[in-house]
């Protein structure tokens, strides 16, 4: 872990309007995330974990406040600028894998590379390396609908790392998996953090999942309660 700050949230507030009601999720939230962290964000359902991840991933905008990434402000970028920024900097992993059912495993992994200008040979190499890393080289041509949940999540991990982003955002990555498979996936994330230097932000409500992270933040009523774990 370096001391370089990757994310900086300054006075971030987020409100939703539901009918006449105004729901405040965050009010003047401040936090920073350093490069190379493996951070788990915990909290009960409805505490705003997904909302926070959406803000960090630039798919949602704060009602007020600023979000800085790698020294530049991102919350005021346009929709298409944000899309470019996400493609270049962030890998996403979802609870329900969110793979494309009409594509086989390796084509799913190749998908983010359509947003780069790599040659098709370079793409093939990248895809093969990512598939190798998640241990699915022999399943490259399989359809993901014929795979187990754990295998699908490994395909999703390969897709998240194939374009070599600095940061990986995971929303309940083990929420749909059994204990043993969940542990495999979490070890894989740990490996990506430890050996490949990826910064990982993981939202979870599973305490044992959080034990894989280097640091855990507890989100409750829009506030963070920090708990440093032994590293």
């Amino acid at each position: 872990m370096t001391d370089k700050i990757l994310y900086d949230l300054r006075g971030v507030s987020k409100e939703f309007v539901k009918g006449k009601e105004k729901i405040t999720i965050f009010d003047n939230l401040n936090m920073s995330i350093k490069e190379g962290e493996f951070l788990a964000i915990m909290g009960p359902s409805g505490s705003g974990k997904t909302t926070l991840l959406n803000l960090l991933g630039g798919v949602d905008k704060p009602t007020s406040g600023e979000i800085w990434f790698n020294g530049s402000r991102v919350d005021n970028l346009s929709e298409s600028q944000l899309a470019k920024w996400r493609a270049g900097n962030i890998g996403f992993i979802f609870q329900f894998y969110n793979l494309m059912p009409m594509l086989n495993a390796e084509r799913n992994v190749e998908l983010p590379l359509l947003l780069t200008n790599l040659s098709s040979k370079q793409r093939k190499e990248r895809v093969a390396a990512a598939m190798e890393l998640v241990g699915l080289s022999d399943r490259a041509k399989h359809m993901t609908s014929e795979m187990s949940g754990g295998q699908q999540q490994r395909v999703a991990i390969a897709r998240a790392i194939v374009s070599d982003p600095k940061l990986i955002l995971c929303d309940e990555p083990t929420g749909d998996l059994d204990r043993k498979t969940a542990d495999e996936i979490l070890s894989m994330l740990q490996l990506l953090n430890r050996d490949f230097g990826k910064t990982i932000l993981m939202v979870t409500h599973d305490p044992s999942a959080a034990t894989y992270a280097k640091r855990t933040l507890h989100l409750d009523k829009g506030e963070f309660v920090e708990k440093e774990l032994t590293t």
Partner: peptide
């Protein structure tokens, strides 16, 4: 849902 995922990955709306 898939279109949402594509956009999240960085495919522009256009």
């Amino acid at each position: 849902n898939e279109i949402g995922v594509m956009k999240t990955l960085g495919f522009s709306s256009l």
